[in-house]
Design a binder for these strands. Structure first.
Lengths: 217, 217, 217, 217
DNA sequence: TATGAATGAGAATTCATTCAT
DNA sequence: TATGAATGAATTCTCATTCAT
């Protein structure tokens, strides 16, 4: 009567897992498109093809579903950050790589940006209620601190750089450009997402960050 | 004895104007707090003390009200930008002043940040439908281009800097810090809005921007 | 100081009269197009170019306005009926003339049909509340009775025809065709209002009525 | 023991069907009493005892509900027409039977008349949007054409009668009397719906129609 | 006479959520 | 686990009507 249930999930469990993932994905897209207030549980159900009732079965209510989506989003980006392996590069190369990574991740995960906007509109309440809080902690800050320290020692980065400030600046330069691309595009009357424009933005960001961090020779 | 009648609007006009302004202010706060989807017309009416019907009388529907709020927000920041008079300063000083202005404006007008987030969530549709579009155009870009050109000529700023890229970077560094301060605060477990933290952020931003723009000596 | 006011209306009175007529006309069209429940006081005001408040000033409320419109509509058709002078014709010609008149009046006053529909939807309550009730009484019934009697005496119409029944039949054959032309057109998939179709309808109606009323020879 | 399951729908299905029918019936009465513009969704819900939300669940909005009501009304009268079996009668008898049927159907289904009025007020838009359009097509026209042809061949009906014109005349004579009975009653100051009056009306209609259609001997 | 501003009661529609199976 | 039916509480928007001048 025991117990292989944990290691060998039966079909029902696999279906359950699959349903939850489908809901999570559909909810992520819905919340990203419409925000928390504009998202519709009905639409999420439609997106999955599953019954609306199931959403409540697995996630209790809309707010908890949003919380789960946020947790997943953070979990995803943390996994990507872990895969970076900046420690194998010189400090300046690592810094450049970090700028590239940030830019590309935001570019490839536009939903992440709007989800964060929504989370902040609600004063990060959903994150603070989360008990998977540990996954919020970015390893990047420690990695960045290491890089900065390593660069300082090697003499190819200047000293005295605050890793948190630098991280926020890198993220901010990418984030603002992409998150606000619609209003910026309207104001400047130009397409900020053409391949050329995207390339130019990354160059500019790298120039600024490395211009700031490189040791003066 | 006659004739100040032109400069002194009668009560009716004044009331209409006043009512519209009151609605606009209340709506701004409501939209800023809750986003477009989360805002409630009822609450806006309550905030003004006026009848809900009046909101529809003057603004037709929630979307047009949001549009009017955005127009006002842009109109306000453009007015502040006009008052800057950067042309009286040296190029490096003007640049530093611009960074400060951006930072302080966002700090003092947190509603502006969330309004822009909402506008972008809706793909800037409300701005594009606006026929007060000219007020979107920031004079800052031209001012910044002038500064950069002046600095290059005077030999105290490096050449080849794109004013649009630089503007977005300045704005982005301030915007991201403030707009996302709740999630960032949760992640870093620190208060980003203490006086000290705010001072540190402004210093960092100025350092980065000026470090990038100053001519190498 | 005295008194020509009754016979020589001053400008203000003329304006007042003109405003009331404008409202009445606009209201007639609005009620005819949308029915009593679907009519909008705002739209009536817009149609006149006058202020909405004026409608209430002159007509108290929407129901009384509808009542006034109905009274006017009956007054108009009674005036047209009075102008018929059927007494100058032989009985069969008078009958044919009456069929023609009915058909043409309905054709030229489509609003009359929908107004009557609305009046009946409300169980003629507005007419019964009217104190201009006398204008409801159609002279046609008496005229028709005279014709039928005259024809019987002259031997060119059969006897024993009830004028009320005949009147309702004439009216009904015209009314139903025109009032229900949209649904009939949809069912029969043909245009009932082409010149040819209208001509055919009038012929058919005359045939039926005269076929019924003419004395067998 | 198994297997009547196919013929006996389970409770859920039965309830859904029953709810929809209840809504349809209540809506029919509400629309018939007040017209489309005057009908209230709230009242329809109250009439059914069901939740108002359910109306939208099944019928989307008020206009589509009205459309469904119209479709049902047409479906009902078509079913009654199908049950007539006029082909077993001689042509004159069939014609008389048709007049009687029309009169009695309108008399027993007064809601049908006001529903049609409303449909026409809206220019039959709801019917034209219906994709159950085939149920609009009355078999009566074909039946009537057959009768007329049969009568002509048998020599007991005159030739050259247009079935559409005749159908509209029969319907119109009944419709107008009943649909406008309130205004007619007010004008003629008599009760048009007393048993005697109803009998007289049917006689008159039959006289007119048969007088018109019978072959002259 | 005429008008723009303002309102309360409602009316259609929506939405998150629960029921029953 | 999964689902269609059902609901109460909003929520946006409307409408006839009145206020104040």
């Amino acid at each position: 009567m025991p117990s292989t249930t944990l290691s060998v999930p039966d079909d029902r469990q696999r279906d359950a897992e699959r349903s939850q993932q489908a809901i999570l994905l559909a909810a992520r897209d819905e919340f990203a498109e419409h925000g928390l207030g504009g998202a519709r549980v009905d639409r999420i159900a439609q997106r999955t093809g599953l019954n609306k009732r199931l959403i409540y079965y697995y996630f209790d209510n809309k707010d908890r579903l949003f919380q789960a989506v946020l947790e997943q989003a953070y979990s995803d980006i943390r996994a990507a950050e872990h895969a970076l392996h900046l420690e194998d590069l010189t400090a300046p190369e690592a810094l450049r790589r970090l700028v590239e990574f940030t830019w590309n991740y935001y570019l490839e995960h536009p939903e992440f940006l709007t989800l964060l906007n929504s989370a902040n509109l609600h004063k990060a309440r959903h994150l603070m209620d989360s008990n998977r809080a540990q996954q919020l902690n970015s390893p990047l800050i420690d990695m960045l601190a290491d890089i900065l320290e390593r660069g300082r020692k090697d003499g190819n980065l200047r000293g005295g750089i605050d890793p948190v400030q630098l991280y926020i600046s890198i993220a901010g330069m990418a984030y603002f450009y992409l998150s606000n691309n619609h209003t910026l595009g309207a104001i400047f009357n130009q397409n900020l997402l053409s391949p050329k424009a995207k390339q130019a933005r990354l160059s500019h960001m790298s120039d600024i960050i490395l211009g700031y961090a490189l040791a003066e020779s």
